[in-house]
């Protein structure tokens, strides 16, 4: 019996931008499976972590960082943006589509927006289908 496919999203989030995964309506029994990864600052996201999330079966990876100009560590979110762009290109090169990876500036505590973003990511996955490297 083939297991029923359920889209999997890995969420890297800077705790200064967003730290309320429990409040997300998708944690249990939702339309997709969410794997949150907490970071003390978004600059901690490394290229290889993003790729390994895909290796671990993610259909999409989202990165939540603070709005530009509001990083506690000055430029962590800018670094994160540059890395995400680098890995997006890499994913395109591999043929996995850079669209599966996205970065979002999230105002601290704005759960509503977080939910909206994840829904958008989910709808993108539905467009693209499951990751071909699962």
């Amino acid at each position: 019996m083939i297991k029923k496919y359920k889209p999997q999203i890995t969420l890297f989030h800077c705790i200064n931008a967003f730290d309320n995964c429990a409040s997300l309506p998708v944690s249990t029994g939702g339309a997709f499976e969410l794997k949150p990864v907490k970071m003390a600052c978004s600059s901690m996201v490394k290229d290889v972590f993003l790729l390994r999330a895909f290796e671990a079966g993610a259909d999409a990876v989202a990165v939540f960082v603070c709005p530009e100009g509001q990083c506690r560590y000055v430029e962590g979110n800018i670094r994160a943006k540059k890395r995400v762009n680098f890995v997006k290109n890499l994913l395109d090169e591999i043929g996995l589509s850079g669209r599966r990876l996205s970065l979002h500036n999230v105002e601290c505590g704005d759960t509503e927006n977080a939910v909206r973003i994840l829904q958008q990511v989910l709808s993108d996955i539905n467009d693209m289908g499951p990751s071909p490297a699962k």
Partner: peptide, 14 residues
């Protein structure tokens, strides 16, 4: 090394 290895694995797996 880590990034390239991961990218290669993904690429072949795909």
């Amino acid at each position: 090394v880590a990034t390239l290895s991961s990218a290669l694995r993904l690429s072949f797996k795909k």
